[in-house]
Design a protein around this nucleic acid. Structure first.
Length: 936
DNA sequence: ATGGGGTGCAA
DNA sequence: TATTGCACCCCAT
């Protein structure tokens, strides 16, 4: 017997979304000036919900008048301010659009919406339904559970995209099981509803108590023994906790007496929706509506497949009676299988100013992936997918790849034809490897989003669609499966592939149309995007494609050597411990050292457990020989597993080189990040570590050139702070740490001791990270008071630095962001957090970001400049005389012809130094050698 | 299989 | 109780 899919019921918590959308979205208004922000959010949420095609649904809102909670507790919700006028006027239109979408509205007099939802959810789930409560109110987590017979209740927040579908998910978010949520809320209270909880008891404390004592009753019983201020607060709150629990408990047994069809979806009222969307300027919703109502005929070809969403919804096993309202179409997508279709699209692209493109491949690694298909979009809501290499049994005949690429080449390679994409660097790689060098890559939605707000969300297409369009894209796993059963995209049926791939191009285009005006409205961000990020894309693509040559044999020798020494350390450790244990397991190391050997646990992990990290082992190294041996083993194991074993595996068989991947939207400050492998954390500090750099080599006839900025972040601090003493120190060209020590300790430069220089260096670095006296003391191994004295002394000598830091914090608080010299912004969401730790963290980030971010901007500018200059150079054979192969935050590494070394060295250094004009000189150091180590 | 925690590498 | 990252291993789910 095939398993029956349970009927699906969606209950929408209307008020929670209305409030959330109102506060989360900018105060939008339509052409007539009517406020629309909340409506826009709710409409997008509803469209996404209906797209899921539930069997039944309801939009639940509070009815005017009193409810049982008001009787129980007269102050209930007394804190809630009256609904803002801008929001109030959106309520009636909201109900109208809900109505027009065919969603039943439930408003039950005398019963709160929460309790209506709770009662309906429980009843339906008991009867075997899969119930989704769509809400942005976390209190509903108390209802999440599964039932015998297949019924279940889950929570989704369609706006944030989060989902709580079982106890584990609830526990992950709240630290307690769903059944304990009411107890958690009773302890925490709810400021919005004017339900006071235990003072100073937030989610963490409440969860901790519940984990320890099981339930609210358990906490109440144990209250007498809980120490500290928060224990006093708990005891003071005891009398009201039972009432709290009652107030926060969502009722599941209110009499409702609904008609049989109360949850039944009706057909949507297209005319009303059209009027509504037009009036409020919801153009995307309008296009979707029109696209679905009157699909255009297919542009030709006998083999043409049509992939309208309506078609798919009907073809899929849609529940009987599912109304058209559930068929909200994402777009009109065409599978291109004939020459006529291809020609029609080429004509469309030729006529358009710009178009979005996306490639589909059979692998994630851009340097290995094979092209499987291409998608294109020129107008919102309409896109095509051109399958090229789908190979599953029964796959329709597809156009020959070369023919398609030749047809598109004039467009893709035309610098005057603007192309846009999402993370287009990947597609540039794939197309280049299939013979097409894309030019005119003008816009990238990932980078638009990143520059607009680096921390607001992730910058992948799904997150962007969700955040900016309120739209849930089809997931890769939806069409290709997941885990061991996942298939390659070349195995995906063309119908599914088209929905997925064409949607990507379509959504990319829609996102660009939304994001580009936002950028245009912020000239400084627009410049960062146009002058730094976009021009950097092809530069990074070239560096990645160049790759770096690795001496794999050398690394294998090192692995063997490390292995022998690891074995020796392991044997020594076994002897010292008197038994075998896993040296790689922190847990076993802790048990051995702190329990069996009774050594003192002086350092804690961030999780509060005894730590076995380097600092902890150093702290007890004088009490026992074992910690030192474990440290020795660790150092060796790290080098071997992460570097000497791994790097040879990463050599691309086609190129014989290692190709890292640089993430342009990786670090919030604007830095790049590197992965697969990460070539930005190759060891250098220890001799064993540095040996690894000897395996980064140049081929015969070439050398490695490494150019790095000297103290760039400190120079930026001098520039930003304009502190006279610091500016003077850099202008003099002296060793900056030595100069700082001389200034702080009141000595001549030549009289500074090694220890004084070390202290000054620690202060200089610490300052850039927003360090405290505590941190400096730990770093230098001195008393906290002494560290405080150093810092005070430093600030007295460099008052401009203190003023700059104060001003930076102040700006962060006032504007919510800080910026780099080039205008890149970093928003600091936690700068006003009530939690002191979070707020302090945001302040440190505020101090650090302008310096780290400006340094990132500068080296990016240098990379663009040097790349352009290199493009015009020719070596003796006519090939490029040098390749940029690595970027490590303040360093650029090149592979260069022997006879071009000095030319490049002079040119690259000069261009790096000229990448910004600061109040201090930018100094670039460089080195040359047969390998990366020698070049330092 | 997947993810969190602990650890450690770089600038 | 120092910024930004990525990746390894263990181990619980």
């Amino acid at each position: 017997m095939p398993e029956q899919t349970p009927p699906r019921l969606v209950l929408i918590d209307g008020s929670s979304y209305l409030y959330r959308a109102f506060h989360a979205l900018p105060p939008l208004s339509n052409a007539a000036g009517e406020p629309t922000g909340a409506l826009f959010g709710v409409v997008n949420m509803l469209r996404a919900t209906l797209k899921e095609q539930p069997d039944c649904a309801a939009f639940v809102v509070d009815a005017p008048g009193k409810t049982f909670r008001d009787d129980l507790y007269p102050q209930y919700k007394a804190n809630r301010p009256p609904m803002p006028e801008d929001l109030r006027v959106q309520v009636e239109p909201m109900l109208q659009v809900v109505e027009a979408l065919g969603l039943p509205i439930l408003r039950i007099a005398g019963v709160e919406a929460d309790d209506v939802i709770g009662t309906l959810a429980l009843a339906a789930a008991r009867a075997g339904s899969a119930v989704t409560i769509s809400t942005s109110d976390k209190d509903f987590a108390q209802l999440v559970r599964g039932f015998d017979g297949g019924g279940r209740i889950e929570l989704v927040n369609t706006m944030s995209g989060s989902r709580l579908d079982n106890d584990e998910a609830v526990a992950a978010k709240f630290g307690v099981r769903a059944a304990q949520i009411v107890d958690l809320l009773a302890l925490m209270g709810d400021a919005i509803d004017n339900v006071p909880g235990v003072e100073k008891c937030g989610p963490k404390t409440a969860a901790k108590w519940l984990a320890e004592y099981g339930s609210l009753d358990g906490v109440i019983a144990a209250a007498a023994g809980i120490k500290g201020k928060v224990g006093d607060n708990l005891r003071a709150a005891l009398p009201r906790l039972p009432l709290n629990r009652e107030l926060v408990t969502i009722k599941t047994d209110v009499p409702l007496d609904l008609p049989a069809d109360a949850l039944k979806l009706r057909a949507r009222d297209t005319q009303t929706l059209r009027n509504f969307y037009t009036r409020y300027g919801f153009n995307q919703a309008l296009r979707e509506l029109e696209g679905n109502v009157a699909p255009e005929p297919a542009p030709g070809g006998k083999g043409a497949l049509r992939a309208t969403a309506a078609g798919y919804a009907r073809a899929a096993t849609a529940p009987q009676g599912a109304p058209d309202a559930a068929l909200a179409a994402p777009g009109d997508y065409e599978t291109v299988l004939t020459r006529a279709q291809l020609q029609a699209w080429v004509a469309k692209l030729q006529a358009a100013d710009e178009f979005a493109f996306d490639t589909e491949t059979d692998a994630l690694d851009a340097m290995r992936a094979g092209l499987v298909g291409l998608s294109l979009a020129v107008e919102s809501g309409r896109a095509c997918y051109i399958p090229l290499a789908h190979v599953y049994p029964g796959a329709p005949a597809q156009l020959p790849m070369q023919e398609v690429l030749e047809a598109l080449r004039p467009l893709l390679a035309d610098p005057g034809k603007r192309k846009l994409g999402q993370h287009g660097k990947y597609d540039l790689h794939v197309l280049r490897r299939h013979g097409v060098d894309v030019a005119g890559y003008a816009d990238d939605t990932m980078l638009e989003s990143f520059v607009l707000n680096a921390t607001a969300s992730r910058h992948d297409l799904d997150s962007l669609a969700q955040r900016y369009l309120g739209y849930r894209t089809l997931q890769f796993t939806d069409v290709a499966g997941k885990g061991a059963k996942q298939i390659g995209f070349d195995q995906v049926a063309l119908e599914d592939a088209t929905r997925y791939a064409a949607e990507d191009a379509d959504i990319t285009l829609r996102l660009h149309r939304l994001l580009a005006p936002k950028l245009a409205a912020e000239p400084s961000l627009q410049r960062v995007y146009r002058e730094i990020e976009m021009p950097l894309v092809p530069v990074l693509a070239r560096i990645e494609a160049n790759g770096v040559l690795i001496d794999a044999a050398e690394l294998r020798r090192q692995s063997a050597d490390l292995g022998q020494r690891m074995l020796a350390a392991q044997q020594q450790a076994t002897a010292l411990a008197g038994r075998t244990f896993n040296l790689d397991s922190p847990k076993q190391v802790c048990a051995l050292l702190y329990e069996e050997l009774q050594l003192p646990a002086r350092v804690k992990t961030p999780g509060g457990q005894p730590s076995a990290n380097e600092e902890a082992l150093e702290a007890i190294a004088e009490l026992h020989e074992l910690p030192r041996v474990i440290l020795e083993y660790r150092g060796l194991a790290k080098l071997r597993s992460t570097y000497t074993d791994k790097l040879p595996e990463m050599v691309n068989p086609a190129t014989g080189r290692v190709h890292t991947s640089y993430h342009q939207a990786g670090a919030a400050t604007g830095r790049l990040a590197s992965s697969d492998p990460n070539l930005q954390n190759i060891p250098i500090r220890t001799e064993d570590g540095r040996r690894i750099r000897r395996a980064f080599v140049a081929p015969p006839g070439r050398r490695i050139l490494a150019c790095d900025y000297s103290q760039i972040e400190l120079r930026i601090m001098a520039h930003l702070s304009q502190d006279p003493a610091l500016l003077r120190a850099f202008a003099s060209g002296a060793d900056i740490h030595r100069a700082t020590a001389a200034e702080v300790f009141g000595k001549a430069i030549e009289d500074v001791s090694g220890n004084e220089r070390r202290a000054a260096k620690a202060i200089n670095f610490g300052l850039m990270y927003g360090m405290s006296a505590f941190g400096l003391a730990k770093q230098l191994g001195i008393a906290r008071g002494e560290a405080q004295d150093y810092i005070a002394l430093y600030f007295s000598r460099y008052p401009g630095v203190r003023d700059f830091m104060d001003a930076t914090r102040q700006q962060a608080r006032e504007r919510g962001y800080v910026e780099t010299v080039f205008g890149r912004r970093l928003y600091l969401d936690n700068i006003h957090a009530r939690n002191q730790g979070l707020r302090a963290g945001a302040e440190r980030a505020a101090i650090n970001a302008p310096m780290q971010g400006t340094a990132a901007d500068i080296i990016k500018r240098a990379m663009i400049d040097i790349d352009a200059w290199l493009a015009g150079q020719r070596g003796r054979t006519g090939a490029a005389p040098a390749l940029m192969v690595l970027q490590v935050h303040d360093e650029l590494v090149f592979e260069v012809d022997d006879d071009f070394v000095e030319t490049l060295r002079a040119e690259a250094s000069a261009r790096m130094a000229a990448a910004a004009s600061l109040r201090v000189p930018l100094v670039v150091d460089s080195g040359v050698g047969a390998d990366w180590d020698q070049a330092h």
